[in-house]
Amino acid sequence: MEKFTRLTAIAAALPIANVDTDKIIPSRFLKTIKRTGLGVHLFDPLRYRADGTENPDFVLNREPWRQAGILVADDNFGCGSSREHAPWSLMDFGIRCVIAPSFGDIFYNNSLKNGLLPIRLPRAMCERLMADAAMGGNAKFTVDLERQVIVRPNGEEIRFEFDPFRKRLLLEGLDDIGQTMAFSPAIDRFEERRRREWSWLPATTVA
């Protein structure tokens, strides 16, 4: 997993509630067997017109937000499906941090596993950050995970809450599987006990 420590970048505002995963990356682009290359399809329904040309009104099609590394979004961002293609496409585009009042649960989890930092902030604060983002190229944000602060373009620091366990994994770029492997003996013991106590549970290889 890519580390997340500190990011200074332009932010783009996406003031739409309930941006679902079909809007982030429509299902017809899920046929890949790779994790990379999905950035061109990010927000396809919003970003492209029916004839395939760019919609000039969409924020990520405009300078300087083509270079955005941060997205400030609205309520329930990433609701819908479990497709990890959603964080993959955001990352592939260059976005490493999404700030929103709330997130779809699975999207939130998936982001953490890919080094994409999802930050929850109250709605009123997100609205202020959206206004900052509208200022464009001279208005960079800094997101500092170690200190759990967002530095607004005017220098004001906004604190955000973050799970300490997840914070450590992100800061060090540790992947979950490596962590869990350290618990192998505990998993072995658990399985042994279950085989005794849950002997009624058949294997999926029975039929």
Partner: peptide
Amino acid sequence: FGIGTSEVEHVLATQTLLQR
């Protein structure tokens, strides 16, 4: 419950998930 692809890999490898 539904999980993402990283978690699919995690379950395939460890038969467990990290969850709150």
